[in-house]
Design a protein around this nucleic acid. Sequence first.
DNA 1: GCGCCCTGTTTGACATGTCAAGCAGACTGT
DNA 2: ACAGTCTGCTTGACATGTCAAACAGGGCGC
Lengths: 171, 171
Amino acid sequence: MTRWLTDDEMRAWLGYRRLRTLLDLQITRDLAADSGLSDADYDVLSTVSDAPGHRMRLGELAAEIKWSVSRLSHHVSRMGQRGLVTRDDCASDGRSATVVLTDEGWATIQAAAKLHVASVRRHFVDLLDPADLAALSTIAGKVLAHLEQVTPPDAARRATPRTERDKPPAT
Amino acid sequence: MTRWLTDDEMRAWLGYRRLRTLLDLQITRDLAADSGLSDADYDVLSTVSDAPGHRMRLGELAAEIKWSVSRLSHHVSRMGQRGLVTRDDCASDGRSATVVLTDEGWATIQAAAKLHVASVRRHFVDLLDPADLAALSTIAGKVLAHLEQVTPPDAARRATPRTERDKPPAT
DNA sequence: GCGCCCTGTTTGACATGTCAAGCAGACTGT
DNA sequence: ACAGTCTGCTTGACATGTCAAACAGGGCGC
């Protein structure tokens, strides 16, 4: 028999789903209006700007932000046309492509970050007290510990059969 | 000056972001593997199946799940081709279109729901204790109370200027 | 040094989402 | 009753994401 969610569980789950939907919508809107960037753009720019030299291997970047390499390749091309990043053929390995922030990309992410933080505060962080934040970190920690086990860092490529992949953790 | 996030705030925010990314990925994968449905399909089917008569006005449905009417119209067409739903011209108002679950759609969502709940338990609910769930509900409540005020139910259509729309709530 | 098979990336075809325009039924005032 | 406008939905063009195939360099065994 299916074990359905209790009221409390349902409230928490639906709360999460709705939070996710509305918060993301709002953050996305702010980002577009404030800085002319999509969420995708922001993820790429902020991640690359954290890397030494404002440059990062395409594959690593994709893994870091959990995108398919293909998606990233396409998106980098589009961001390239807008002048935010460049591709740079790495010397040591002829296959590799490196994504590099342009000056404009760097200026853009710096300006965007300020406004983005404000947006995150306005719609999320500043609404919560320290206990809420701590609870959230705890929750994220528990769930992520599980998920990173279910889907190990590079599992996307392995053709692991479903029955294997989905087995609940030994606990 | 920009007020950056403190370590605790950052941990909570990044935790949320990462949770959102990985959890959604996993749930989406399970849903596709278990039932051959996308998240989008599931949202539509489960929402319509909750409505009386398994039928719902297109516009209402769109508002409920926070989609653009256009997106829903396209998606309903595609689901129609797969035999999950039908369009039904409502009698009382010649403009309206009503989305109706087919028998197959109903059977599909019933089967999918069981497996989906299991997936949600496995990767989320069962990992958390009652205190976590309560905390999450609290957090969602606070943030949603704010967001639903910032973006009132039907605000999507109003061409409200940004400066107006983004004003932080009076508090 | 040459087949062979990896591995990292690109590409193209197709699925999905967005935006603005189009369209037809319903109100409203005269 | 009918012109003008509004409302609910559809459509088409385009942007973005996905999947599988193609491509090219690297590393290995011989």
